[in-house]
Design a protein around this nucleic acid. Structure first.
Length: 232
DNA sequence: CGTCTAACCTATTCAACTG
DNA sequence: CAGTTGAATAGGTTAGACG
């Protein structure tokens, strides 16, 4: 099948009488309805599916850097592809609309994977901070307990009073530190909830919106302007 | 309300590329 | 040549149009 002069090895050129089956993308490019490849091959032409899979006459080609750049900048503007933009890009880049759609689909998948990686890093960092806080507070409680015990021992006459006080104070200190921990945990939970809510498969925002609307930036290492295939 | 269709998703495949 | 990347496929879900 021809893709802008590029070809794929596992989809051999058909006999001319059957060429319409292989040119469904061409049809859609001319404004006709897109037909899913699997619809034709799986349900109507299983033998042809074999031919298409195991034929080895054509080569799968990658997009040119110009095509990639253009698609990338379009993706940065808006991660979803509306039909007009698809047709515009298709004409500009000399690619089939289906190719444009697939590129955006794959690009969104890569974007989401990156976002999850950054979310994981961010949450791990927050967890480390909270754990450190917890340890510090526990150390503080231990120190205060030790101090109270020491005071109790050195003042025999007031022992009963201090012993009583130490229990109360200990409880106060412990409840204060626990409250602080609960507060921190709530903050983290809130952030998790907030960030997991952003994209459950239906996102209607662009990258800029995403960065602005979230307190914890998820793209510090992968800014909108940097293409996904950029490796410094 | 059920059916159809288009667009989307995730998971997977496999050719092309790379170290 | 094994591992990685990315274009494309497979199969499922969902939303909207329509009778």
């Amino acid at each position: 099948m021809e893709w802008n002069g590029n070809t794929r090895s596992f989809v051999p050129q058909p006999e001319s009488s059957l060429s319409f089956l292989y040119n469904y993308n061409q049809c859609s490019y001319q404004g006709m309805m897109e037909v899913k490849h699997q619809d034709w091959t799986d349900t109507m032409f299983p033998e042809m599916e074999k031919m298409m899979k195991y034929g080895n006459q054509e080569k799968k080609k990658r997009l040119t850097s110009e095509q990639m750049e253009s698609l990338e900048s379009s993706f940065q503007e808006e991660i979803k592809l509306d039909p007009q933009r698809k047709m515009k890009l298709s004409k500009e880049l000399g690619l089939q609309p289906r190719q444009i759609a697939i590129w955006f689909q794959n690009r969104r998948a890569r974007w989401k994977t990156k976002q999850l990686e950054h979310l994981y890093d961010s949450l791990r960092h927050q967890f480390e901070v909270v754990s450190k806080e917890k340890q510090q507070l526990q150390d503080e409680v231990m120190k205060l307990k030790a101090m109270l015990k020491e005071q109790g021992n050195s003042c025999g006459r007031m022992q009963g009073y201090y012993t009583e006080m130490s229990v109360e104070e200990t409880e106060t200190v412990e409840s204060t530190s626990e409250a602080a921990l609960r507060c921190s945990n709530r903050e983290v939970k809130g952030k998790i909830h907030q960030q997991l809510n952003i994209d459950e498969g239906n996102c209607s925002f662009n990258l800029e919106d995403y960065n602005i609307n979230n307190n914890v930036p998820l793209l510090p290492y992968w800014p909108a302007a940097v293409p996904y295939n950029y490796h410094p």
